[in-house]
């Protein structure tokens, strides 16, 4: 299929992009790698009037050691994150999850910023940044602001970004050990039916893929762990308070069950990795 017609503008800087966004934020879309947006446009499920290509904005593709955290440019491609020495050493969960997104071709084009800003609860990276308690840095006409990951994912394909803002950086505290990622799908290239990102380094945090209309934390599990529960008991509370979707690939009931199994496995694996 061929997308409906649109006006294409290529941004040379964040300022370019923000300026064009401000003109008509509701019918303007930012295009980074395009691997969330273009498939929707081809099926004509998205028909933006203006497409602002930020793919060439210089200086937004990096994975940098920033002392207590790792700073990742929003245009960093999944593949670059996957093989980044900094990421592998300091936030190995994120590097690993980046290597699980889609397929190799998708990872060569898709960017972390594009994936997070799309806000798809079936995507892997949102769960990873939520488990890592990352901070999103957004630029907009009102300046720069920081948004905690736990405030960022608001609803189905909905984030805390305003229509005239652009995600520019992701800051992730270092968590070199005690992590695990579990992804359950029927084909390797598919979105997860359920996924689990767990970080036991520091206060335990467990985030879930495809267990609600947005990326969510397994609060029940986190509470149980904080109270000193064993992995199996904490995992049993993984779906507590959650309303996972029922769709072609799995029922809500099955997703709830899978969450408990996968969270248990993730916790055991993460604990073993912590040593």
């Amino acid at each position: 299929m061929i997308p409906a017609s649109f006006e294409y503008r290529r941004a040379g800087s964040v300022e370019d992009a923000l300026g064009w966004l401000a003109e008509d934020p509701d019918s303007t879309k930012l295009l980074a790698g395009g691997h969330s947006l273009l498939p929707l446009m081809k099926l004509r499920l998205a028909t933006p009037g203006v497409l602002v290509d930020v793919g060439r904005v210089p200086g937004l593709s990096y994975v940098r050691d920033a002392g207590d955290h790792v700073a990742i440019g929003a245009l960093t491609r999944h593949r670059d994150l996957e093989i980044s020495e900094v990421a592998r050493a300091s936030v190995p969960l994120l590097a690993h999850v980046a290597g699980q997104v889609g397929d190799p071709q998708v990872r060569h084009r898709g960017t972390i910023g594009g994936s997070l800003a799309h806000g798809d609860p079936a995507s892997d990276l949102p769960a990873a940044v939520l488990a890592l308690d990352a901070t999103m840095v957004a630029d907009g006409p009102r300046g720069r602001r920081e948004i905690a990951a736990s405030d960022f994912f608001r609803g189905f394909l909905e984030t805390a970004l305003e229509p005239d803002e652009m995600l520019t950086e992701i800051r992730v505290r270092k968590a070199p050990s005690g992590w695990a990622f579990q992804k359950f799908n029927r084909r390797a290239q598919d979105w997860a039916i359920v996924g689990v990102a767990a970080v036991l380094d520091g206060e335990p945090r467990v985030a879930l893929v495809n267990m609600g209309s947005t990326t969510v934390r397994a609060r029940g599990t986190e509470e149980a762990l904080a109270a000193g529960a064993e992995a199996a008991d904490a995992a049993a509370r993984a779906a507590e308070g959650l309303e996972p979707p029922s769709d072609l690939h799995a029922s809500a009931e099955y997703r709830r069950h899978l969450a408990t199994v996968l969270v248990r496995r993730a916790l055991v694996e993460a604990a073993a990795a912590r040593g």
């Binding site: 029927r186 084909r187 390797a188 290239q189 598919d190 072609l248």
Partner: peptide, 28 residues
């Protein structure tokens, strides 16, 4: 193990793409 042309009760085909109709790859 993988494939089915699924319809809803009104007769809408739900598996119209290769993202939903699960032709297995080498990885499967």
């Amino acid at each position: 193990l993988y494939e089915e042309a699924s319809y809803d009760e009104r007769g809408n085909l739900l598996t119209t793409t290769l993202a939903d109709y699960l032709v297995p790859a080498a990885s499967e």
